[in-house]
Amino acid sequence: MVLVQALVSGILIGGVYALIGIGLTIIFGVMRVINFAHGELMMIGMYLTYFLFTLLHVDPFVSVLITIPIMFAFGAFLQKTVINRILGSLPQNQILLTIGLGLIMSNTVMLAFTSDYKILTTSYSSSSLHIAGISVSQPLAVSFAITVAITAALYWFLMKTDTGQAIRATAQDREAAQLMGINVRRMSILAFGIGASLAGTAGALISPTYYVFPQVGSAFTLKAFVITVLGGMGSVVGATLGGIIIGVVESVGAVTISSDWKDVLVFAIFLVVLLVKPSGLMGKSRM
């Protein structure tokens, strides 16, 4: 019974992890840049959600509609002004640049809104449904449903639209795509915008059951790396799977092994995947 419970909550929380991972994987796929500021983008999404809720009384789940375009614009702006300038440069410089950007984001937020924890209390923050003795967190169930919808929409966009195919082509081979007349610059801006809005959405969805503070991002950045590598860098389906696997491993690991060793387990799985199949679970089919 405890195990089933762990499995259910693991899958639900894994949905949110998946969104963070998908955002990172798209950015990496198109630009080959590991975004160390990914958690900070999520943090900004959380603050947006928080202020939309407390100031304008927009429900966190509805606010996703506002958060997505704002975060898209922010991501596109970052790509255009900063990230784009280092696309060809050394990988360690790319890493440090995104680390620097992360520091700037989290500390600007801290100066503006202090380092206080902000808690978003909705009427359903601790509600749950009980199905056959298993409790299902209501807000998590809703956010899982939204995650599924967004992932499906994104998949359709990437597979069926011209722009989506252009993004995929860029991810597969940047130079070839350029030769074929694809505006690679524009695709990069799109990709970073999508990545940022997905991170922001994940932030919005986790807000009703979690809390917000300027340094909240770093833990999620690390998680996003694990998820992305697990699924195969650049693979959307892989990141979705990876997110759910990590959610389940954490949750089931906490009851079967112990809550303090479960994080070691996550990293150990990460390493094993890196060694046995560095291209990840879905590595071959980029995106």
């Binding site: 990496f28 080959r32 590991i34 990988p91 360690q92 890493i95 690390l222 790396f225 694990v226 590598v229 860098m233 303090d260 060793w261 994080d263 070691v264 990293f267 150990a268 990460f270 390493l271 890196l274 060694l275 560095p278």
Partner: peptide
């Protein structure tokens, strides 16, 4: 060292995190 580029970076982070958690 079986990994290259970004994969090596991430693996080095993961191992250091395992050491810290241990």
């Amino acid at each position: 060292f079986r990994l290259r580029g970004p994969y090596f970076v991430l693996a080095s982070i993961a191992v250091a995190e395992i050491v810290r958690l241990t």
